[in-house]
């Protein structure tokens, strides 16, 4: 169990670092969506199903959609 949790935490941090270094904003947004999704799984392991549900439906779905719409209306690449 602790091994799985550690791997999930590691994957979450790697995704956050990817959001830091990608210069393509769309890739960075998808990486931050992955952070939210893995955080939602960790919330479930921490016995917080309500929060896991909110994070999965809001953090991973709606926030990503709002970001993608905003990027479509501005610029895709960071110069």
């Amino acid at each position: 169990m602790i091994i799985i949790v550690s791997l999930l935490v590691l994957a979450m941090l790697v995704a956050a670092v990817a959001a830091l270094i990608y210069r393509d904003l769309l890739s960075a947004v998808i990486a931050s969506c992955l952070v939210s999704l893995l955080a939602s799984i960790l919330f479930f392991f921490l016995q917080a199903p309500d929060v896991a549900m909110a994070e999965a439906s809001i953090g991973a779905a709606l926030v990503t959609a709002i970001f993608v719409i905003a990027i479509r209306r501005t610029k895709r690449y960071e110069e």
Binding site: P49, D50, A52, M53, A54, S57, I58, A61, L62, A65
Partner: peptide, 17 residues
């Protein structure tokens, strides 16, 4: 059960999305 107004509202908004 787990869930509530905020989560259900977000699910409904994603249907409109």
């Amino acid at each position: 059960t787990p869930g509530g107004g905020f989560q259900g509202g977000a699910v409904i908004a994603s249907a409109f999305l």
